[in-house]
Amino acid sequence: MIPVDSIDVLNPRERNRKIFDEIVGSIRSVGLKKPIKVTPRLGRAGDERYLLICGEGRMKAFKTLGEKNIPAFVVSVSDEDAFIMSLAENIARRQYRPLELLAGIESLRDRGYDKKTISAKTGLSIERVHGILVLLEHGEERLLVAVEKGKIPLTAALTIVGGGDDDKAVQRALQDAYESGKLRGKQLFEARRVIECRHTLGRSLGRGMSRKRSDVTTASLVRTYQKEVDRQKLMVKKAEITQQRLLFVVGALRQLLANENFSNLLRAEGLDTLPTYLAERVWPTMSMA
């Protein structure tokens, strides 16, 4: 048991309020299930203090509940090892926030650790660490967060990065990922959305960093307006192309479905139904579920 007020946080992080309230409620109801982990240090006045390695949420919950002391595992490690242990604890949690993983891996890399060592310290596979480091080197924070949230696979993100800044190359990479089976269904939609945000807002999320505001001038307003006009024109052009392709598909389906042999083949293969959206266009007066 050590005094709560004698603990200094080594690697502080932001916490979701709802999750924190759940921690407080759990400790109030059933007590502390797992002690925090600290390492002893001498304070400036020569008093005994501790650096927190893991358990910031539990410690803050104890403070909220008015507790003066908290159960703790006390280990004797250097500042460097304490920092690494703190990062590893955060990354290895079952429910970590994607940006915490990013910051943790980034910190370990900046401290000179290679992917094999990072893998050993965090419990992540070498392949995953390698992929994260590649995305970090390219500043692909948006893709990283999408990967860690499970929206797109890491292999697909690396394929997209291979396209560089060339929009056509990125689209080809996306097509390759789809054809190779790396992206399917909802993941393909998410990948397109991330790529659009990446194109318009940049690869980095900023993470709260302040950005210098540029002075607004007549010329800058005209450039911004022209850029928006060009973007709108491109959207209209893409919509027209998509509409033409849909009309072609509808016309082709009408001709094919008028062929009795083709219809029999579809029935034999169990493909004799159409999505309502498409059926209403193939046969305007009727629809097939």
Rank of each mutant, 00 (worst) to 15 (best):
V249Q: 14
A268I: 02
F248W: 04
R223M: 09
L256I: 11
F262T: 10
Q226N: 15
G270P: 00
T224R: 05
L246E: 08
P275G: 01
L247V: 04
Q244V: 03
Q232D: 04
R245S: 08
L221S: 06
L246N: 05
N259A: 07
L247H: 10
R245L: 14
D230M: 09
K227Y: 08
K237W: 09
S220P: 03
L278H: 03
A239C: 05
Q243K: 15
I241C: 02
L274N: 05
A279W: 01
L234W: 08
L253G: 00
G270M: 04
D272S: 15
Q226T: 14
R223S: 05
S263V: 07
A252S: 07
T242W: 06
Q232P: 00
L266I: 04
A268K: 07
T273C: 10
S220M: 05
P275H: 05
L246Y: 06
Q244L: 13
K227L: 11
D272G: 13
A258N: 15
L265K: 08
L278D: 01
E269R: 11
Q232N: 02
L247N: 13
R254V: 03
V229D: 02
A252W: 02
V236K: 04
S263Y: 04
R231T: 07
D272I: 06
P275R: 04
R267E: 15
K227S: 13
F248S: 08
V236G: 00
F248H: 09
G251S: 15
A219T: 09
